[in-house]
Design a protein around this nucleic acid. Structure first.
Lengths: 167, 167
DNA sequence: GTCCTCATGTAACGGGTTACATGATTCT
DNA sequence: AGAATCATGTAACCCGTTACATGAGGAC
């Protein structure tokens, strides 16, 4: 379900092909969303059947065959309606914490905590890069910035927890 | 896959039935894990076939028919081996952030942020209760405490983000 | 000529939830 | 007597990933 709206959301920014959507989900949305081809293409076909999106005609000079889709008014309305509904939150799961929970001695899992700390630190640096890029390319999009800030808050908290636990 | 080890992990604490596992996953593990019957019972059958767990004989005086399982030595070894492997982390996803990202005006999504803040505040209170209970019932389990601390750090960070975003 | 990227798609599989079916026991 | 809880299990379905198939265009 959400895949459909993720696609509509991206198309609301600009018309795209399935391939573009994949790319966009990797670089613009990567800090909170992602989609794989196995979901994108079937979803695009479905959305087109339901007339929430439509295929744009290919420009004459185009070399590669690309199927670029755009939102229809109906699609825009569907997106807006979805946005107003409360987001579904899926229960938190952590295999790391499960390992902590069943560990008898701290030694077994200590290295996992250290590893997590390393990963989150790298992620924090990545967020800093994204934040800078947004400030440069889309300074008006304060809500885009908020999505990055979420990641920053979250990563910092995880790092703080790692430090506390390692003591 | 992880379901199997979650079950082994719980059985490593004490022998349990499928029903017990469900209960335990609801109250002891709820802050970072959960399982549904649809996964538990098939997994138990599989684990028994593979001799990682075994069915304990029912005590004579038992009223209700219960199938209580215990870890076998093989199961204990499997659990230990799993614990040493780095945990698989699944990429973060947030429908809320997706809604923020596609929102044109903040008004659409403001109430979702407020709602999230409310939920996280309630969760924080729940963590405080769990922490207190652990301090009372299992003061030696410092790693159990760490799993709760994780939730506390995470919730506080989310609340801080909500406040920042609402401004 | 070969390799990488662009580009669209499908099939198989695994993870997980929900709803249902069934029935015994205990509580009020 | 009726409701809640204990208790085990299955079937249908959705969500999502991975791997594969296919082929064109551009870079070196």
């Amino acid at each position: 379900m959400t895949t459909r709206y993720a696609i509509l959301g991206l198309l609301s920014i600009e018309p795209m092909s399935g391939y573009d959507i994949r790319r966009a989900s990797i670089d613009a949305l990567s800090h909170f969303w992602h989609e794989s081809y196995g979901q994108i293409y079937p979803a695009l076909a479905e959305l087109e059947r339901e007339k929430l999106i439509r295929l744009l005609p290919q420009p004459e000079e185009a070399r590669r065959p690309r199927k670029v889709y755009a939102l229809t008014p109906k699609g825009r309305r569907a997106l807006q309606a979805w946005r107003k509904k409360p987001p579904v939150t899926r229960p938190f799961r952590s295999e790391l914490l499960l390992k902590l929970f069943t560990a008898e001695a701290p030694g077994d899992v200590l290295k996992h905590v250290k590893q997590l700390r390393k990963e989150e630190t790298a992620r924090l640096e990545e967020y800093a890069r994204i934040e800078k890029r947004l400030a440069r390319e889309a300074p008006a999009k304060t809500l885009w910035k908020a999505t990055v800030r979420y990641g920053i808050h979250r990563s910092r908290a995880v790092i703080a927890w790692c430090d506390e636990t390692l003591r």
